[in-house]
Computed example of a mutant assay.
Amino acid sequence: MSKAKRLLDILMFVKTKRKFTAQELADEFEISVRTIHRYLLDLSDMGLPIYAEQGRHGGYTVLENRMLPPILFTEEEAVSIFFAFQSLSYYRSLPFDTEISAVAHKLYNSLSNDAKIKVDKMRSYISFWNPKRSIDTPYLNDLLEASMLNKNLSIQYDSKSGITTKYIRPIGIYAHDGLWYLPAYDYNKQKILLFRADRVLSIQLKETNEEEFMNLEEWFDSTEVTNPIRLYALLTREGVRQCKSVPWLEGCVETKEDGTGYIDSPIEENEISFITPLFYRLGTDVQIKEPKYLIDRMRLQAKEILKMYPE
């Protein structure tokens, strides 16, 4: 029997039994006690938390842990998981204790030599790219925990108007374009707002809520508009292409046969501040018809820029 198969059998046995002696393992697998000790050292190096008790009545105990039992993957499944990890490598902060590089390293080492050669070659031809961000998000784990535990938070937030204190109820976190975002119910504004997680400067845990609230998945699926205004804009072919690359705007774009298009959709009134910079970057590839408030904001921004570049 190969050493790898023997280690797997011993691992399954000790995780089930939890408390045992080296002699018991030697009798079970019909090998020497010395060999059992070597195998237990190998398992410990692999991450199995084993506690040794010395003395006449001593032995070994497998401590409570979150280590998963062995999972068998096909070669194709292992390769696909390995490359899925690659998309996470562009994020400076992750809400996980184990570094993705360590997990990917373990998975790579478990592959056959042929599979390793295949992976090494594929690295030059495929990438799940995101912008490489150097921004740290120190409270990412805490924000996720608070969302899952249904807790309110008092946060110091670096907003456009300066550092402010927010009293919120977070509903989850999500990653987009190399950054982490935090949708949360703002008790002062009495509505769900979207915060940049890296702009949270400090947090203070508050009370736990008794009643359930909307979670991130439900928020993504929600299409309810509480303060609707009409957004109507004409798009060139390039405007259609650009707007369709924006996830939250993609579903609102209607395309004509010639490739041009338009947006005619109700939006939340407070979304105007997010839409203005996007449409301003599009320049002549978008012509806003409604609302007048958005047109006025575009004009104001254009005037402010022209002041910086007088003739």
Rank of each mutant, 00 (worst) to 15 (best):
L8N: 08
D9E: 13
D9A: 09
I10F: 01
F13H: 14
Q23K: 13
D27I: 01
D27L: 11
E28S: 09
T35V: 10
R38D: 03
S44Y: 03
S44P: 03
D45W: 03
G47M: 15
L48V: 11
P49L: 10
Y51C: 00
Q54L: 10
G55Y: 00
T61Q: 14
V62I: 11
N65V: 08
R66H: 08
L68Q: 06
L68H: 06
P70F: 06
P70Y: 10
L72R: 11
L72T: 15
E77R: 12
E77K: 09
S80M: 14
S80L: 15
Q86P: 06
S87L: 06
R92E: 12
P95G: 05
F96N: 01
F96E: 03
E99L: 03
L107S: 00
L107P: 02
L107D: 04
N109H: 13
N109A: 10
N109Q: 14
S110C: 15
S112E: 09
D114V: 05
I117M: 13
V119G: 11
R123G: 00
Y125Q: 13
I126W: 09
I126C: 03
S127C: 09
F128R: 08
N130P: 03
R133P: 02
I135D: 06
D136C: 07
P138S: 09
P138F: 07
E145H: 12
A146F: 14
M148A: 05
K151S: 04
S154W: 11
S154F: 06
S154I: 12
G162N: 07
I163F: 08
T164C: 10
K166A: 07
Y167A: 07
A175P: 14
G178K: 13
L179R: 14
Y181F: 12
A184M: 04
A184S: 12
N188A: 14
L194H: 15
A197T: 00
I203Q: 06
Q204P: 01
N209K: 15
E210V: 05
E211H: 11
E212F: 06
E212Y: 09
E218H: 02
D221W: 04
S222E: 11
T223S: 09
P228D: 08
Y232A: 00
T236Y: 15
E254V: 13
K256H: 10
E257Q: 12
T260V: 04
I263C: 04
I263F: 04
D264M: 11
P266N: 13
E268C: 05
S273K: 13
F274Q: 10
T276P: 01
F279K: 07
L282C: 07
D285C: 02
D285A: 08
Q287S: 14
K292G: 08
L294V: 06
I295P: 02
R299H: 10
L300V: 02
L306P: 03
L306D: 05
M308D: 08
